[in-house]
């Protein structure tokens, strides 16, 4: 790597930090309980809009996993999400009416909060519809994973996004509050992901799955990215570039072995394709909030009106992390 490219990446990183700082000023604290954060806590960072019905299960899921504190940004919800979160003892909440897109889909806001509160902690950045799964997650809390990563000298952990979908039309079975979304959306694609390596930031770029198959059969290049690095031992000079797809400094993106071995990795089960989606996608298109990733959302919206069925007879029904491991979607690596 030449000195100029190192320098260029450093400038880029500073640029993103400055941006996070500017966008961070749009955030108004609702309840700030960050005093309660203990030095060893694993912290979760989330941006959301109108996710009230999902929140109870979301919080319980991650509490059970061992998350110590939730730092959340509410982007002008009008469904009671804010009041609900403000009451939770382990949630610190900020709110903003500013544009989601303007904050690069919330990345700037969270970069700012991570800079401020995440330094020295393991931080997990997830959306309200993303559920983190890692090897042994059914028997070991998240501290076991972070502790192990630390002894191995690893600072970041990869967990690819796996789109989950129901058997019938996406909106056929209504989702009710507190319910495990994967009781409904329990199916996934297990072997149609394609990967390439990003030469600039050294991360892997993963696409595929049901969205590429159903919504982008003619232009797969536009299909959404599924690579994610949501768990990082944060330092205040780190920044996420695009959602949690990649970070700077770019050494954090090398969560894979290029010599044939397998590093440990997890998955983010994506409970997007539920009855809650139709309403949400329509709202998003109206607000044009997503138009950067608008292709995807417009496609979703059009398709959703046709009540798509993502299920095929080759779909796999989700059982547990071991199944994902055997299928080759994630790996235990050398963690035994």
């Amino acid at each position: 790597m030449s000195a100029t490219s190192t320098y260029r990446l450093m400038l880029k990183r500073h640029g993103y930090q400055l941006r996070a700082w500017r966008r961070g000023r749009d955030l108004t604290p609702v309840t700030n309980r960050t005093q309660a954060i203990r030095p060893q806590d694993v912290l979760a960072f989330t941006t959301l809009r109108n996710e009230r019905v999902r929140l109870p299960y979301f919080l319980d899921y991650y509490r059970a996993q061992g998350i110590g504190h939730f730092l959340m940004v509410d982007n002008a919800s009008d469904d009671g999400s804010r009041d609900y979160l403000a009451e939770q003892p382990d949630v610190s909440l900020w709110t903003t009416p500013a544009s989601y897109r303007g904050a690069r889909f919330g990345v700037d806001w969270l970069n700012r909060l991570q800079h401020r509160y995440g330094h020295g902690h393991w931080t997990l950045v997830v959306d309200a519809d993303e559920f983190f799964v890692y090897p042994y997650c059914d028997t070991r809390p998240i501290q076991a994973l972070t502790g192990w990563l630390e002894t191995c000298g690893m600072r970041s952990f990869s967990a690819m996004l796996i789109d989950m979908y129901p058997r019938g039309p996406v909106d056929a079975e209504p989702y009710s509050e507190g319910q495990n979304p994967f009781e409904i959306a329990s199916w996934f694609d297990n072997g149609n992901y394609f990967i390439s390596r990003n030469p600039e930031f050294h991360n892997l770029w993963i696409q595929g799955g049901p969205r590429a198959r159903v919504f982008f059969p003619d232009k797969p290049g536009a299909a959404p990215s599924l690579n994610k690095i949501p768990l990082v031992k944060w330092r205040r000079d780190y920044v996420y570039l695009q959602s949690t797809h990649m970070l700077l400094p770019r050494a954090l993106n090398v969560t894979y072995d290029d010599q044939g071995g397998e590093m440990t990795s997890g998955a983010l089960l994506h409970a997007k394709f539920l009855s809650t989606l139709a309403r949400k996608a329509a709202g998003d298109v109206q607000r044009k909030a997503y138009s950067g990733q608008g292709r995807e959302n417009r496609a979703n919206d059009t398709q959703l009106r046709n009540r798509p069925v993502l299920w095929t007879r080759w779909s796999e029904k989700y059982i547990n992390w071991r199944q994902l491991e055997i299928l080759g979607l994630m790996s235990k690596g050398n963690w035994a």
Partner: peptide, 13 residues
């Protein structure tokens, strides 16, 4: 060594 022939998020030879 990993699983030969597998290309995934944490194995990309």
């Amino acid at each position: 060594r990993g699983r030969p022939g597998l290309y995934m998020q944490s194995r990309f030879p």
